[in-house]
Each structure stands twice: as C-alpha cells, then as structure tokens.
C-alpha cells in the first residue's frame, strides 16, 4: 500500500480543501504582517539617520557624550580663545601631506568651551585666528583615549583629549571635540579643514521590529508544515 495514495485522497476532501484555503489566507496575512514590520524597521532607521544627519547646536547634546553622538554633525558659534591653542604635530592634510593640526578652544554663547580641530597647516607655518564671533559647522568626535599615558611627549601634545587640553589651558571644556568642516567668516590663511575620523553617527537599531518581521515569515512556514503534518496524520488514521 503506497502511503501517498491515502495522503492525496485525504488532501482532496472538502475539509482539507477548506483548510488549504485557510492556510493560503493565513500565509498571505503573515507575509504582509512581516513586510509591515520590515518596512517599519527601515522607516525607523531612515528617520533616526535623518535626525542624526541634521546638524544640531553642540550645546544641545547631552554631556558626557554617548557613542551615538560620535560622528554627529554639529554647529557652534562663539569666539576662538587665541591663547588656548595647540599645534599637534605629525598629522596629515586631506592630500596626506604631513604637517600640524591646529586645536583651539571655542567659547560658545552658553559660556562653555569646546576643543575644535580647526584644520591642518604645513609644518611650522603661521595661520590666522579669527577675531570676534564665528559660526562653525563640524563633526563631533570622542576624545582620543588610546595611548593615554603617552598623550604628552615631553611638552608636545600628540592626542586630542578634552581633559588633557582642559588641564593645559586651564579652561573647562565640554567632552569630546569638533573637527571643523566650515567656518564663517573665513580668513584667507585659515588652516585647511581635515576629514573627521568618525563620520557617520551610530543609530539605535530597531531590533524588535526586525525580529518580528522574521518571526511572521517563520510562522507562515510553520503553518504550511502543520497543514502537511495534519494531512499525514489524517491519512494514517484511515488505514
């Protein structure tokens, strides 16, 4: 007796055909429920990314910085404190030419200050520091924490760390620093802007929606399995 003949006889009964139609309806429903959660995942990601791309005033970012803030576009306006300034040697320009990076403290309207990498200048060359109020736009970075012990090589500073700079300048600084991308007004011999190390902000992934999407599709497959198993068991009962 071939077991399949019973299976197909069973599959052709009205009850089985009704169950099959229900199964198809359930699979279609579950597919679209999964797709809805999938689209929600993408929409939430897009919205979060758009929100993190838009430049926000640096004073609006909570202190201390969280990993999600690294790489965020920020704006600030205030004045550079020309005594609070360091040259950091052995740094590259956009064209990979060795020179110095200029880091200055920018005092913003709230009275707080933040370290700003204004850009690159050829080794030993002088540059202009704007007087009065400037508006800048840049990318927020975490303080360099690697090689902390060797942060200062003699009197020379090699890492950009807000705590270290704060101690050096005797000025309280906000956490992290800004890699300046544009400044207005801009003098002719200003430092040349450099690319930020971290340029894309990390956004929180909507895990729940993503897994629900997968789950609905798994449930649809499970429903198919159950239908087949139901037919197999039913056909064995008749023998």
């Amino acid at each position: 007796m071939p077991p399949s003949s019973n299976f197909w006889t069973r599959a052709k009964t009205p009850a089985s055909i009704f169950a099959l139609l229900s199964l198809i309806a359930v699979c279609v429903l579950f597919f679209f429920l999964g797709k809805w959660q999938w689209d929600r995942t993408q929409d939430i990601l897009d919205a979060e990314r758009a929100a993190s791309m838009a430049a926000v005033p640096v004073s609006e970012i909570d202190q201390p910085l969280k990993p999600e803030d690294y790489g965020r576009a920020v704006t600030a306006s205030g004045s550079f404190i020309d005594t609070d300034q360091v040259r950091i040697g052995s740094r590259l320009s956009r064209e990979s030419i060795a020179g110095d990076w200029i880091v200055s403290a920018l005092e913003i309207e709230t009275g707080q200050s933040i370290a700003v990498v204004r850009g690159w200048v050829p080794q030993g060359q002088s540059f202009a520091t704007p007087e009065g109020t400037v508006s800048i736009e840049g990318v927020l970075q975490p303080s360099d924490t690697f090689y902390n012990a060797t942060g200062e090589r003699g009197s020379e500073i090699v890492t950009i760390d807000s705590r270290q700079l704060s101690a050096l300048w005797n000025t309280p600084l906000l956490d992290g620093y800004i890699v300046m991308q544009s400044q207005s007004p801009l003098e002719a011999d200003s430092p040349e802007s450099v690319p930020p190390t971290i340029s894309t902000a990390d956004v929180a992934f909507p895990l729940q929606n993503f897994f629900y999407a997968i789950q609905w599709w798994v449930f649809a497959l499970f429903a198919i399995t159950i239908y087949i198993r139901w037919l197999v068991i039913g056909s064995k009962l008749r023998t």
Partner: peptide, 9 residues
C-alpha cells in the same frame, strides 16, 4: 519581547 516571540514558537 523578541524572546517571547521565539519562546512562543
């Protein structure tokens, strides 16, 4: 909630 989803499975 994700755990509940798989436990429910």
């Amino acid at each position: 909630w994700i755990a509940h989803g798989w436990l429910y499975f």
